[in-house]
Amino acid sequence: MAASLARKVSRFFKRMGVVGYSKRRNIFGIHPIIISTTYIIIALFLAALTRKIINAIFSDSIFKRMVLEFVATLELCAACFELIIVADNWGIWAYALYLCLLTIWWGKNWENATACPYSHVEEILEGFQDVSYAALLIFSQILGAIVTFRYVQILWAMELVETHRSKAFEDCVADLQVHMLLGALIEAAGTCACRITSRFLSETGTKFGNVLDAFFSTMMVVMAFNLSGGYYNPALATSLKLGCEGNTFVEHLVVYWLGATIGSVISVIIFRSAAVQDYLKSLKTKVD
């Protein structure tokens, strides 16, 4: 009877597409996307567990914020390394679905961490943070971005599924498909649009604002995917693409650091302008 039940379960999973792939190339014949999803979930779980431990051990301090930024950046980059596998094998819309869901998760779980360097530049401009404090947090993010691939490399080197074959040691290729200045403009415009939208949704308390924010930012990534990559985050871009074939170091800095940071600064200027602030006040008045 147990054998019969096992066969029924096996047939069910085959019909669902979970198993049935070559067992020589995929562990237990499991669909490769199951392993990719599992790797992403492991990264989320480990980061969530680490955050709980940090919050339990440390009181509020600059050191605690640095560690939380390091963890958030590592979590972001680890998940996005696996999203490269998803995009390469199942297309841009599978990638977009995963990214949107992940963005919603991160928005609910990161608390004050951002895993994004220009967020601290914005706080400096708005007078909420001093330069030395911000520099330490940005350093933590860069460190998290740099070490992430060593963690990912261990998982990929196991080659549990065919989509991970040779990925741990192959040379990466840059995503920038346009001229450096156009790439910087794309990253700046996308960053600016995402930041203004996020601020607007937050300020107005829009219902399901976190979902709308995640959807909008994901669509902006999709729009730039085949142009600059649509990273809109210098730390993420550095983790995934610094040193990849097809980009010089200067091109990387101009497109993904300078471009995104300029876009962020412009978003602060626009959002703090009298016209935008008056409009927000009028909306709040109508709601009241």
Rank of each mutant, 00 (worst) to 15 (best):
residue 36 S to A: 14
residue 38 T to P: 09
residue 38 T to Y: 12
residue 39 Y to K: 10
residue 39 Y to C: 14
residue 40 I to P: 03
residue 41 I to W: 08
residue 45 F to N: 08
residue 47 A to Y: 07
residue 50 T to V: 08
residue 50 T to D: 07
residue 50 T to I: 07
residue 51 R to T: 10
residue 51 R to L: 12
residue 51 R to Q: 13
residue 52 K to I: 15
residue 52 K to C: 14
residue 53 I to V: 12
residue 53 I to Y: 06
residue 54 I to G: 05
residue 57 I to V: 15
residue 58 F to W: 09
residue 58 F to Q: 03
residue 61 S to V: 00
residue 61 S to W: 04
residue 62 I to H: 10
residue 62 I to D: 13
residue 64 K to N: 04
residue 64 K to W: 01
residue 65 R to A: 13
residue 65 R to Q: 14
residue 66 M to T: 07
residue 66 M to E: 12
residue 67 V to L: 13
residue 68 L to E: 13
residue 69 E to V: 02
residue 69 E to Q: 03
residue 69 E to K: 04
residue 69 E to W: 02
residue 70 F to R: 00
residue 71 V to I: 13
residue 72 A to F: 09
residue 72 A to Y: 09
residue 72 A to R: 04
residue 73 T to A: 05
residue 73 T to I: 00
residue 74 L to I: 10
residue 74 L to V: 15
residue 74 L to R: 06
residue 75 E to F: 00
residue 77 C to Y: 01
residue 79 A to G: 02
residue 80 C to M: 15
residue 80 C to T: 11
residue 82 E to Q: 15
residue 84 I to C: 12
residue 84 I to L: 13
residue 88 D to S: 10
residue 92 I to W: 03
residue 94 A to L: 09
residue 95 Y to T: 06
residue 97 L to I: 10
residue 97 L to K: 00
residue 98 Y to V: 14
residue 99 L to P: 05
residue 99 L to S: 08
residue 100 C to P: 09
residue 100 C to S: 10
residue 102 L to D: 07
residue 103 T to E: 11
residue 104 I to T: 06
residue 104 I to W: 04
residue 107 G to V: 00
residue 110 W to R: 11
residue 112 N to Y: 13
residue 114 T to P: 05
residue 115 A to H: 08
residue 116 C to D: 14
residue 120 H to L: 07
residue 120 H to K: 09
residue 121 V to G: 02
residue 121 V to D: 00
residue 123 E to S: 11
residue 123 E to T: 08
residue 124 I to H: 01
residue 125 L to M: 11
residue 126 E to K: 06
residue 126 E to D: 07
residue 128 F to L: 15
residue 129 Q to N: 07
residue 129 Q to D: 09
residue 130 D to M: 04
residue 131 V to D: 13
residue 132 S to C: 11
residue 133 Y to L: 02
residue 133 Y to G: 01
residue 133 Y to C: 01
residue 134 A to H: 06
residue 135 A to E: 08
residue 136 L to G: 10
residue 136 L to N: 09
residue 137 L to N: 06
residue 138 I to H: 06
residue 139 F to K: 00
residue 140 S to C: 06
residue 141 Q to D: 00
residue 141 Q to H: 01
residue 142 I to H: 01
residue 144 G to C: 07
residue 144 G to K: 04
residue 145 A to Q: 07
residue 146 I to S: 06
